[in-house]
Amino acid sequence: MVKLKKYNGFLKLFVIFLTLFSISSCSTKNYNLTKIEGKQVPVTEKTGETTEIENFIKPYRDHINKDLDNVLAYCPETLDKSTGKWQTGIGSLMADVCVQRGNIVFNAREKKDIDLCLLNHGGIRAILPKGNVTTRSAFEIMPFENSLVVMALKGEQISEIAAYIIKEKKPQPLSGMTFTIAKDNKAKDIMVQGKPLDLNKTYYVATNDYLANGGDSMTFFAKSTQKFDLNYKLRDVLIDYFKEVDTVVAPKNIRITEE
């Protein structure tokens, strides 16, 4: 009798113990982070394709390809925006083409000439590889839906453009304007269309709507006295240029000199 009683007491204790343990171990306790492994998995041709995904993409791709793979011109060398400190072949080309093609619209509508063009280095989204140039190339370089605008700026703002370029330290696409970066990191000998900058004159500056609205901190465009929307997408400017020429020639002339 005594023996049984003692045994029962032990059993009770055991059950309480078990309950306590299971509560503390399995309910409220959070997980502890013990190990982290990080790596990068490259996606290459060694990875097989997923048929279901491939079949899903195909009709979309076929439709676009039919449209894009028309050969428009030939490019004798790869043009890359990362190969230049203050100017690049592809940047100069784009800015020049914007002045040329933009003038067709601007002359006809406003009977005025574009003096210069400033675009942004970041807006060139791809290289132009050596070989056939297609509509696709234009889409890759200029995937954005930005259009060309002309801003009327005073000479004062033109000097702000030079200061901006120096401050940003990037080869911003520039056409119609040249200057020298002096030893004190200030712009000098600013020339527009081959003539010294006149601070009181109004200049017509071509750019895209993104930059005209202050994009990339191009605040000088906010001081414009007049804005002309050319309703001409930059990508279409490029496509029209490619259609016009047989061979793409990137300008090599120096627009910004460092002293």
């Binding site: 171990s25 982070l33 013990t34 990068q40």
Partner: peptide, 22 residues
Amino acid sequence: GRIDFYFDKDKAHTNQSATIVV
């Protein structure tokens, strides 16, 4: 990108920082 996280409930690991293998 791939990051693997391993967790356990071992009390001994509660206040330890995780081993990072990168």
